[in-house]
Design a protein around this nucleic acid. Sequence first.
RNA 1: ACUUCGACAUUU
Length: 235
Amino acid sequence: LTMENTLIHMYGNCKRLDIAHAIFSGTRKDDVISWNTIISSYTKCGFGDEASKLFSQMKGEGVIADEATYVTILNSLASEAACDHGKQVHVAILSVGLNWSVFVASALIDMYAKCGNLYDAQKVLDRSLKRDVGSWSALITAYAQHGYGHKTLELAAQMSGEGIRLNHITLLSILSACSHAGMVNEGCCFFNTMSCEYGIEPSAKHYACIIDLLGRVGRLEESHNLILRIPVKPS
RNA sequence: ACUUCGACAUUU
């Protein structure tokens, strides 16, 4: 069965859902990993509606959804901004007691954020039994993408206060937030100190963000100089 | 979390 699951995953990644589904259909359909794999394949190919149907079928077959199932289905709902269905899944998660999972929390926060519901996204983090850099970053990214620059930095400070260090994704969201909110000095400060302060060497994505930030406020010369001095592989 | 599974910037 491990072989079948591996093949479903492989064909799903190659966008060959026909083959993936044929292999899945050949199994006994009683293995949660097989279901997770086929649902994930449909999600990655952009067929969220099919993923939701399979999720219903899975429950109909009496297979118990696990942490990975919920994370996968939430990703699918997030990409479609399916807020009502997302709420229902959230209720189901609470009823099976999966709110200890940082992975489920991240996926819930991301789902609410992509639905434009920052209020519920914040509530998920506040009520999480466990928080890690991933669930914090999900919320920080949410505020960053909605243009709340000061709130983004405030949350990053709160996270640090809990003893959780910023990682490359958190820093990327912070730089993006500073760029969109016109917080030039703050953005430059994070960029210049991220290596010594947080032990994160700027990647091509971080460079892209800081160059964008400088460009937006017309500091094109500095922006250009920075481009010439990028030590990482350009994309 | 290498059989499945979270947060990912720019042009947008």
